[in-house]
């Protein structure tokens, strides 16, 4: 194709504006979508293991640090701790895997009950009935001496029906 003065101008104008747009959009994208540099460990002390009874879930409240943008706050976090007969400790994250409602342990039914859409979970976190798509999410757990430490929450796998 023949390059006229007009098409030369046209091409320069388009490419310069494209460059400017890209030079604004790239930092914008990085600024809005890339996570900020996070610091610190997430392990929290959730209390003494001797306070737990085997086969009886207990809700523990612990102080948790949160890096919230430019603020560092400490607030309460909760977990359902379950000690099995084999002294194994499991810590469930406190929200239903369906839509995030807080569930509770029902002593009579011996099940975790979500009050929002009636999902029921067994003591080991499996879905028994209801719309919940996954078993309960768990914290990573570590024992140091007699103290229970909770790490990051690990999202459970989707269970196929």
């Amino acid at each position: 194709m023949e390059t006229t003065r007009r098409s030369f101008y046209h091409r320069i104008i388009c490419s310069l504006w494209a460059t400017i747009t890209a030079a604004v959009i790239v930092p914008t994208w990085v600024y809005l979508f890339r996570p900020s540099h996070k610091a610190g460990s997430v392990w929290v002390d959730a209390g003494d293991v001797r306070a737990l009874e085997a086969g009886k879930p207990k809700e523990v409240v612990f102080l948790r640090l949160r890096v919230d943008g430019w603020k560092r706050t400490s607030g309460n976090g909760t977990a359902w701790l379950v000690k099995s007969q084999g002294e194994k400790i499991t810590a469930f994250a406190p929200q239903c895997t369906h839509l995030g409602c807080p569930y509770h342990w029902d002593e009579k039914q011996q099940k975790f009950v979500c009050p929002c859409h009636d999902s029921l979970f067994s003591i080991s976190g499996e879905v028994l009935t209801g719309p919940a798509p996954r078993t309960l999410d768990r914290y990573e757990v570590r024992l140091e001496g007699s103290r229970v430490w909770l790490g990051p929450v690990v999202r459970s796998e989707k269970i196929s029906a």
Binding site: P27, T28, V30, Y31, L32, R34, S36, H37, W70, K71
Partner: peptide, 27 residues
């Protein structure tokens, strides 16, 4: 989008933009 318009918080949020947000310095 990352600035808190009150005295004190304004400063720390700007510091956050400058040092912790990728490309915040450039913006």
């Amino acid at each position: 989008f990352n600035y808190a318009p009150t005295p004190g918080d304004a400063y720390s949020s700007l510091q956050y933009i400058m040092t912790e947000l990728p490309a915040g310095r450039i913006i």
